[in-house]
Nucleic acid binder design. Structure first.
Length: 339
DNA sequence: AATCCGGGGCA
DNA sequence: TGCCCAGGATT
C-alpha cells in the first residue's frame, strides 16, 4: 500500500489466505445461486451461525427455480431462527425476478437492483461468483482499513464509508478479486478482531500504521450511543387437549410478519392464570424484553388465535421468543423446539 | 443521516 | 452487560 505498494500488500494477504482460510461450505462452490444465498445469510450474521441454516436451506431449495416456486411460509420456516426475516422475503422476491428475467444477473448494477442486495452484497457476488473487480466493504473490511491507516474517523458516517470504499478499491488485487475480498474479510474475522487483535499472527502487520502507533485496539472509532430499552411482558401458555393457543402476526406487521407467537396476558381477556413457568430475556435489536411465562386456561380461542399441535408447530415459522417460552416446560409432547 | 430489523456469542 | 457480526430498506 504505502511503503511497499499495494501489490506486495495483496501478495502477503493472498498468500496468508491461501494457507489459513477456514473451510466454509460456500467456498466449495462457484454456483452464483449458492454464493448469493450465503451472502444474504451472512448479512449481520456470523459464519458459524449460518452454516447449519445454509446446508438445510439449500437441500430444501436447491435451485433458484425451486426457491421461486416455494410457498413463502416454507421459506420463512427454513429461515426461522436466523433473524432479519426481510432477508428471506427479499431473497424469494429476487428469485422470482431472476426466473422471470431468464437468468442470473452477472454485473454489479443489475445485481444491485434486486431486492435485498445492497452495495456490499452486489460487490460480493460480482467478485466471488463472476470474478469482477468490485471491492467489498463490510464491518471486517472497515476495521482492517481503519487500522492499516490508523484512521480515527467515525465509521458510522457515510462520508467515512465512501472514503474507505475508495481505499478498498485501490488495494483490490484485480487478478483475483474473489480471493482478495474474501481474504480481507477473513483477516477481520480471524486475526484483526474487534478486541484483542492478534497482531503477532497478522500477515500484513508491516503495513499497519495502527500497530506501529499502538492504537489498534482503539480502532475503528464508532460513534452512536444507541441506548437499550427494557420491556417487561407476561406471556401465557394456554393448552387444551394437547394443543397450544397461538396467534399469527398480521401480514402487515412491521416486524416478524406472519410469524406465530404466544399471546401476551393482555391479549386474552377472561384468561384464568395459573402458576408461573419461568422467565427469560430476549434481545431484539435495541429492545431488551424480559418475559415471564405463565400457564393459563381459556374456554375458547379469541379472534385471530388457533389451537395448534406440536406437529403443526414444526412446519410453521415460530418466533424465537416463542421457542424459548416453550422450552420452559414440556409442551407439547414430543415437540422439541430447535434453537 | 437516523432508525429499524433478530439473534447469538463473546469478554 | 455491551458490542459486534460477510447490511439493507425505509423515513
Amino acid at each position: 500500500m504505502r511503503r511497499r505498494g499495494a501489490r506486495n500488500f495483496a501478495a502477503r494477504l493472498l498468500a496468508w489466505y491461501a494457507r489459513q482460510q477456514r473451510d466454509l461450505p460456500w467456498r466449495r462452490t462457484r454456483d452464483p445461486y449458492r454464493i448469493w444465498v450465503s451472502e444474504i445469510m451472512l448479512q449481520q450474521t456470523r459464519a458459524q451461525a449460518v452454516i447449519p441454516y445454509y446446508e438445510r436451506f439449500l437441500s430444501r431449495f436447491p435451485t433458484v427455480a425451486a426457491l421461486a416456486e416455494a410457498a413463502e411460509s416454507d421459506v420463512l420456516a427454513a429461515w426461522s431462527g436466523l433473524g432479519y426475516y426481510s432477508r428471506a422475503r427479499n431473497l424469494q422476491k429476487a428469485a422470482r425476478a431472476i426466473v422471470a428475467a431468464g437468468g442470473f444477473p452477472r454485473d454489479y448494477e443489475a445485481l444491485r437492483r434486486l431486492p435485498g442486495i445492497g452495495p456490499y452484497t452486489a460487490a460480493a457476488i460480482a467478485s466471488i461468483a463472476f470474478g469482477q473487480p468490485h471491492a467489498v466493504l463490510d464491518g471486517n473490511v472497515l476495521r482492517v482499513l481503519a487500522r492499516l491507516e490508523n484512521d480515527p474517523a467515525d465509521i458510522a458516517s457515510s462520508r467515512t464509508r465512501a472514503r474507505f470504499q475508495q481505499m478498498a478499491g485501490r488495494l483490490l488485487e484485480p487478478k483475483d478479486p474473489a480471493a482478495f475480498n474474501q481474504a480481507m474479510m477473513e483477516l477481520g474475522a480471524t486475526v484483526c478482531l474487534p478486541r484483542a487483535p492478534r497482531c503477532l499472527l497478522c500477515p500484513v502487520a508491516q503495513d499497519c500504521r495502527a500497530l506501529a502507533a499502538g492504537t489498534a485496539e482503539q480502532l475503528p472509532v464508532k460513534l452512536r450511543p444507541g441506548r437499550q430499552e427494557r420491556i417487561e411482558q407476561t406471556l401465557v401458555r394456554v393448552e387444551k387437549r394437547g394443543r397450544l393457543l397461538l396467534r399469527q402476526r398480521p401480514a402487515d406487521a412491521g416486524r416478524m410478519a406472519g410469524f406465530w407467537e404466544l399471546p401476551a396476558v393482555e391479549d386474552l381477556p377472561g384468561v384464568r392464570l395459573n402458576g408461573a413457568l419461568g422467565s427469560f430475556r430476549h434481545t431484539i435489536t435495541r429492545h431488551l424484553y424480559v418475559f415471564t411465562v405463565r400457564s393459563g386456561t381459556l374456554a375458547r380461542a379469541p379472534r385471530g388465535f388457533r389451537w395448534l399441535s406440536g406437529a403443526e408447530l414444526g412446519a410453521l415459522p415460530l418466533s424465537t421468543a416463542a421457542r424459548k417460552a416453550l422450552r420452559l416446560g414440556n409442551f407439547p409432547q414430543g415437540f422439541v423446539p430447535k434453537l
